[in-house]
Amino acid sequence: MKKLHSRDILFKEGSEIQKLFVVHKGELLIQKKEGSKLRNEGTVGPRSVVGIEALFHKQPYPYTLRAMESVDVEEVSKEDLQAATEKLPVWFPQILSILAKRKQVLKENKAKLDKIHALPTLFFLCARYIRHVKKDTFDLEPMIDDLRVVNGLGYNETFELLRGLCGLGIAELLPGENTQIHFYRKNLPALLYRTLFLRMTNKNLPQSLLSANEQTLLTAFISAAKTKGFEKQGSTFVTAKNFEAAYKRLFPALGFRRRGFENLIHCGYLYTSPSFTTVDFSKIEFFYAELEAVKDLVELNRVYPLLDKRLLEAMNHA
């Protein structure tokens, strides 16, 4: 039996000692490292068994256990467990191993679901913080604390989620005395939040917000606007000739047809002069739009499907 006094540490987070412990008397405090700080995560008391992952799966301990008072714990090594199971029916250790594996899988799946469920709140908070800063960059600590209050997501888990989002190419983490996050498109967090909220209320929302044809048209407009566009009354104008030239240069195998513009113009993403509804398509002289809004829409259409397809993969490889 191992005896601990108040403030003694049973094991530290990250330690790779392959033992589990059975608490017989007293309480221990669970502490997790978050950046340079230790945060209290609860307690374990009598009859608790800790260290299953370390013993069965050879994983480091995911937290630190510190005695809050006089504590008695029983150490169980792999050799101790093997000696004990030899006295049991041959099938019992196999069942014990299967149950331990299933518990580990459930734990990993829950951790992933917790991050996914926190995603809309994360976008909402990022949109709120980014409104009050310059250069589309803000400190992470206050936002992470807010996310913990709303969704209960821990510091390390939030960082994993943020690194996954950075892996999708929408932002970057900036290390320093206070870690910051920089979004490449300032409006994107708000747009992603609204889109996810809409998906919650409308299950039929498609994974791509724009059709492939609409995406190519807006991409061509952005390209033409960068090199040949001119500003007028808060919008960026591009001649029909330059727009068509940019489209053919970027997508030489696709035709430049009227039908692809109808929904873009109907939704107010793109405008024509003269009006598309009053003249033949061949007589249109200019296309115009708010360029930054079009860039936001194209980026939203790129990122939104990746939240389902690649976010978990990006978190795993971050």
Rank of each mutant, 00 (worst) to 15 (best):
K228P: 00
A220G: 13
G268R: 07
T278Y: 11
V279L: 03
D280K: 12
S273T: 06
N202W: 01
A289F: 12
L209W: 01
R249G: 05
S275W: 12
P206R: 07
E285N: 04
S275P: 11
L209T: 10
K283W: 04
A253C: 01
F261D: 08
F243A: 02
L205T: 14
S211L: 01
D296E: 14
D280Y: 12
E231C: 00
V238L: 11
T236P: 01
Y271W: 12
H266Y: 10
F256Q: 07
G260I: 02
Q207E: 14
L270Y: 11
C267T: 13
A225V: 10
R259I: 02
P274R: 02
E214C: 07
D296A: 08
R249V: 06
A212N: 07
G229R: 06
N202H: 12
F243P: 15
L254Y: 13
E214K: 12
L250Q: 14
T201M: 07
L250K: 11
S273L: 05
K203P: 13
V238H: 08
Q207S: 14
S211M: 08
A246L: 02
K248Y: 01
L291V: 12
P274G: 00
N213F: 01
T277E: 15
T277I: 00
L217K: 06
L198V: 02
V279T: 14
R259A: 03
D280V: 00
N204M: 07
L198H: 15
Y271F: 15
R257G: 11
